[in-house]
Amino acid sequence: MPNIFYGKFLNEKIFLDKNETAHLKIVRLKENDEIKVFDGTGNIFLCKIEKIKKNETICEIIEIKRYTKTFKPQIDFYIGASKFDRMKILIEKLVELRVNNIFIYSGQKSQLKFKSLEKFKKTIIESSKQSENYLFPKIDFFKFENFKDIKNPIILDLTAQNTLKNILNTLNQPEIVSVILGPDMGFSKNELNNIPNHFHRINLGNTIMRFETAGIYTMSILNYYYNRLY
C-alpha cells in the first residue's frame, strides 16, 4: 500500500484518526516527517507530522494541490444488498476502476438489510489509499421504487436476450450510465415484471458469474468501451 493517508481538514491543520495513526506507526513515520494526505474530495495535502498521539495525529500543511482528473461518462452502480464480504470485494474493485457513485438498495431477495454505511465507507477509504484515488465515490442508500428516475439504466438480467455491447452502441455519448446489479440471490420475478420499459436489460453471456464478478466485469467493459481510464 502506498504511504498515503486519509485525513480531515480543521482549523488550518490536518487530523488523522485512530486507524490512520495506526498505519502511520506501522510504517514507522515520526514527528517532523513529511507525508501526503488526501481528504476524498480531491484535495491533496503535503504535510509535516506535528504531533503523534495515541489515537490521533496532527499535521501541519506545507502545500495543497487539487486533483482535477475526471472520468467520463459518469458511472453509477446500484447494488442489491448482499453478504458483506462479497459486497466489500465488489466495492473495493469499483473504487479502483473509478466508479463515480455507489447506491445500495434492498431487493426482495436480499438476505440482509444494512442500517449503516460506515463499513462501506471504510472500504472506500482503504481501496482509495491502495489505488491513490483522491476523489471518493459517493455512497448512499437507495429505494428500489426510485429506479424509474435514473439515467440510462442498464440492468443485469439473466433472462435478457440483449448484450451489453449492443446497448452501448445505441447510447449516444451519454453523460451518465447507471448499472443495476441484483443481490447475490438475484431479482425476484415481481421485480423483473415491474421494470420500466425504457430499462436496458442485458445478459453477460453463457457463463455463470458470482455477484461481485458480474459487477467487476461490467465496470471493466464500460471503462474499456469509453476509454475512461486514459
Rank of each mutant, 00 (worst) to 15 (best):
S131R: 02
N133L: 07
A22F: 11
E63R: 12
I195C: 07
S128D: 11
I64E: 13
L90W: 07
R66F: 14
D39S: 05
F141I: 07
M87N: 09
I167Q: 12
F77G: 05
T70W: 00
L135H: 09
K122E: 15
E56N: 11
I64R: 03
F5A: 03
A81C: 14
A81E: 15
F211E: 06
G205M: 01
T70P: 02
A214Q: 04
T159D: 12
K53R: 14
N166H: 08
L29D: 06
E212V: 06
P73E: 12
N193I: 03
S82V: 09
V177Q: 05
R98Y: 11
I62Q: 02
K113P: 03
E12N: 14
N227G: 15
K83M: 11
I195H: 00
E96P: 01
P174T: 11
F84G: 03
F71I: 04
D85S: 15
M209A: 06
K121G: 05
Q173G: 01
L46Y: 05
Y225H: 08
L117Q: 10
F141C: 12
K54F: 09
N19Q: 11
T41H: 10
N197P: 00
H23T: 07
L10I: 13
I104L: 15
R228K: 04
G42E: 08
E63A: 09
F103L: 11
Y78H: 10
T170V: 08
N206C: 01
L222S: 04
D157Q: 03
L94I: 06
Y224A: 14
Y105L: 09
C59M: 04
Y230N: 13
G182W: 00
E31D: 07
L158C: 07
S188H: 08
S220E: 07
D17P: 05
S127H: 06
L10S: 13
L29H: 03
L117W: 01
F84S: 05
A214L: 02
Q108K: 13
I125G: 10
Y78V: 11
I4N: 01
K83E: 14
L164M: 10
S128Y: 10
K25F: 06
I176M: 08
L135I: 15
T218S: 13
T207M: 05
K151M: 13
I180E: 07
T207P: 00
I26N: 12
I180H: 04
L204S: 09
I49C: 01
L181T: 10
S178L: 09
N203E: 03
Y224D: 09
D76C: 05
H198S: 13
G40H: 01
S131V: 05
L192D: 00
M209N: 00
I208E: 05
I44R: 01
L97M: 13
Y217I: 10
F45D: 02
L156I: 15
Y67N: 10
I154T: 14
F136H: 12
S106V: 11
K121D: 12
N55L: 10
P73W: 09
F5G: 02
I125S: 03
D76L: 05
L222Q: 01
F84Q: 08
L204M: 07
I64N: 02
D76H: 11
L112R: 05
E175W: 01
K115M: 12
K189Y: 06
Y225C: 02
D149S: 14
A214E: 11
P73L: 10
N227K: 15
L117T: 06
M87D: 05
I216R: 04
K115G: 14
M185H: 09
G215T: 10
G182D: 07
P183V: 12
F71V: 06
Q74I: 14
